[in-house]
């Protein structure tokens, strides 16, 4: 009796050990599988991108097929529209996040705003592009950098709202109470105390938003369209790095492909740098 029980237990024990080994192997291979693909992508991006890199990228505009050229018009266009979107989106995002965290933290309306904001945060960006098309491009009658900027701003706002609110919630209430006890009106408490305390975190939000829109392509395709020569006129079509990558990568020309890879490397480098700075700042905020 005792012997069979031991044998039964040993079989059970072996089975459990085996299940455990299988599980550890699977989970390890999942991690390796994931990292291999992602490493593969970065490797091709680096090797193709670096080969096409050079000073001409920054000095010459996008060429017709078969000619030499760079990406200067796309770089300038991306810079203009990104800066514009941040200038428009950041104040709205910060004020809205402040409202949610400071004025109506538990209000019913705040619940709705928070919900809607999180939907906008993950909504397909191409749909937001359609919205701006209907709102700006159709009434204006033509594509323009203004429309592209607004489309990007609509993407910036929810990112900034979310991080601003989260960071303000981390500020200890004692700080607010101390300032209020000194007689500061609520707006002073917010501007001089809680914003100050949450500064690094709020900058993180803006950086994350810039990182997000630097690579956005879909909403630009039918708002800013693109432009094959250098243009700083915001009422007309304007080139942008992601849109150029899209157009050139899908073309049959070898030298356009090279420029697309160079653009892809520039965009990824920008995004990764911004995300790393944002992470460092966020860490500083949380400590």
């Amino acid at each position: 009796m005792a012997a069979t029980r031991t044998i039964g237990n040993r079989a059970l024990y072996l089975r459990r050990r085996m299940a455990n080994t299988i599980f550890i192997t699977l989970s390890l291979s999942a991690a390796i599988f994931g990292l291999i693909w992602l490493g593969f992508i970065l490797e091709t991006l680096l090797s193709n991108g670096i080969a096409a890199l050079g000073p001409h990228l920054f000095t010459e505009a996008t060429p017709p097929p078969g000619e030499e050229g760079g990406l200067s018009n796309a770089i300038v266009g991306s810079l203009i529209m990104t800066i514009g979107a941040v200038v428009i989106g950041t104040p709205i995002g910060i004020y809205a996040g402040t409202y949610l965290a400071e004025y109506a933290r538990y209000g019913r309306l705040s619940f709705v705003v928070r919900f809607v904001n999180d939907i906008l945060l993950s909504a397909p960006s191409i749909v937001l592009g359609l919205f701006i098309y209907e709102l700006v491009v159709r009434p204006m009658g033509h594509f323009s950098a203004i429309a592209g900027t607004l489309a990007l701003a609509v993407i910036v706002i929810p990112v900034v709202v979310r991080t601003t609110e989260n960071m303000l919630l981390l500020v200890p209430n004692g700080l607010r109470e101390a300032a209020a006890a000194l007689g500061a009106p609520q707006s002073f408490v917010i501007k001089l105390v809680t914003w100050k305390a949450a500064q690094a975190g709020m900058i993180t939000g803006v950086l994350l938003a810039v990182a997000r829109i630097s690579g956005e392509t879909a909403p630009l395709l039918f708002t800013a369209l693109g432009n094959n020569s250098m243009s700083t006129d915001v009422t007309g079509p304007m080139a942008s790095l992601p849109a150029v990558i899209f157009q050139f990568a899908l073309s049959p020309y070898e030298d356009w492909h090279d420029l697309a890879w160079a653009g892809a490397l520039l965009v990824t480098g920008t995004v990764l740098t911004l995300s790393i700075i944002a992470r460092l700042l966020e860490k500083k905020q949380r400590n």
């Binding site: 104040p91 709205i92 995002g93 910060i94 004020y95 809205a96 402040t98 409202y99 949610l100 400071e102 004025y103 109506a104 309306l109 705040s110 709705v112 705003v113 809607v116 904001n117 939907i119 906008l120 909504a123 749909v127 937001l128 359609l130 919205f131 209907e134 709102l135 609509v154 706002i157 929810p158 709202v161 009106p185 609520q186 707006s187 002073f188 917010i190 501007k191």
Partner: peptide
Amino acid sequence: AGDTRFRITAFAAAMMVLLIFMGVIFAL
């Protein structure tokens, strides 16, 4: 007065988020 103005600005910004959402639906 500044306090009220600040509060109203914050409220308006929060409403802006709702407005964008409704605008998206309406435009589509």
